[in-house]
Design a protein around this nucleic acid. Structure first.
Lengths: 198, 198
DNA sequence: AACAGGTGAGCGAGCGCTCGCTACCTCTGG
DNA sequence: CCAGAGGTAGCGAGCGCTCGCTCACCTGTT
């Protein structure tokens, strides 16, 4: 069990993400995965009980920084609006340096049709939605954002814009700076909904 | 060739959409489709050359009102902001009365990984994006919307919010009024970005 | 006679996954 | 000190199954 084998599971997960990015979830087969890893298909099942377990690991990988990012917000004592920008910037920077990972948010519906995967997905999305909603409501309480707009609607706008920008970034072969556009868009939204803009 | 057979193709398309809605695109097989239609698998291929052709027909069905909706806007001589609300309202009403169809916008990435389907999808999405962008720019030109915000960013916000609301509506088993939330959200956005809000 | 619609067996390919096996490492007891 | 036991990683054949699709054939209408 040398250093390579120690990281086999992690390596499989990264390869799985690459395949999903290149071929779509419909191209992720255990055969293709084993081929790219340079191991036999049987070996794959020494590390994972099933293909679903591999996808669950992909989801874990996808969400592994979530807690850290939101905890950083409270530790840093950011103003709510700055916290929102920090979260978006962190996320977008990560995605920009690892474009293949943006394939995952495009799978939500696909995953939701499987019990195990859908449950995991719900946990991840609920945590994110709740965390962002809390910041939005803090921004409204502190007077940074208008209080006459339902926080749920602001959440739709912020999350929807972000995901839509990611989708367009993929469709256009990453030919603009994801980070810049995400941050610019969020700044624009925050400014448009600020309670004291003139 | 009686009245039923005349509509066989259309009927297959509707059934395909139902299956995608219930089981996901991964559950759409020619076997399942034939079973639900009460015909044999072979017969299916008398009407469609391939499964891909069925999905192409699904996309045609999905987009069949697009032109009409945007043409109505010009015919009705609506103000740009009213045109945006009209488009969103038309779309959301249609979706609310036909919830299964909301499965389709969640397939974009899946479809994009196939050459034929991806091409078709691009046509549809480009047409929609261009049409809405034109209205947004008209709204900016007429002074209804702020001119210091890139129309592309407004497009991200409007389309992203809409798609995100649809996604949430599906995840929450259609337990709120899609139409109301879509219209309310768009009104909120238009008001926040209006050039003369106080 | 031509043809459109329908049947159902069945093809080859690919799927997720299992199994019996080997090779090599590490730990342990006489 | 080293034989043996146990564990882990890997191999590759191959299982049972489903996939999209084809084909020879049937039937009723034009």
């Amino acid at each position: 069990m040398n250093i390579v084998f120690l990281h086999r599971k992690e390596s499989v997960v990264l390869t799985a993400i690459d395949i999903i990015n290149e071929l779509g979830i419909q191209g992720l087969s255990t055969k293709e995965l084993a081929k790219r890893q340079g191991i036999s298909e049987g070996t794959l099942f020494k590390h994972f009980r099933s293909k679903n377990e591999i996808i669950l690991s992909v989801l874990d990988h996808f969400a592994k920084y979530d807690k850290d990012i939101f905890e950083s917000c409270t530790k840093k004592n950011l103003k709510p609006s700055e916290a929102l920008l920090f979260v978006a910037d962190s996320c977008a920077s990560y995605y920009e340096n690892y474009p293949a990972i943006t394939a995952i948010p495009q799978l939500y519906e696909f995953l939701a049709h499987d019990d195990e995967l859908g449950q995991k997905l719900n946990q991840i999305l609920d945590f994110r939605a709740q965390s962002i909603k809390q910041i939005i409501e803090a921004a409204q309480a502190s007077g940074e954002l208008r209080q006459d707009v339902d926080s749920q609607i602001l959440l739709h706008i912020i999350i929807g814009s972000f995901r839509n920008i990611c989708f367009n970034w993929r469709m256009q072969q990453n030919n603009f700076s994801l980070r810049e556009r995400v941050v610019l868009t969020l700044r624009t939204v925050l400014q448009a909904f600020s309670s004291n803009h003139e």
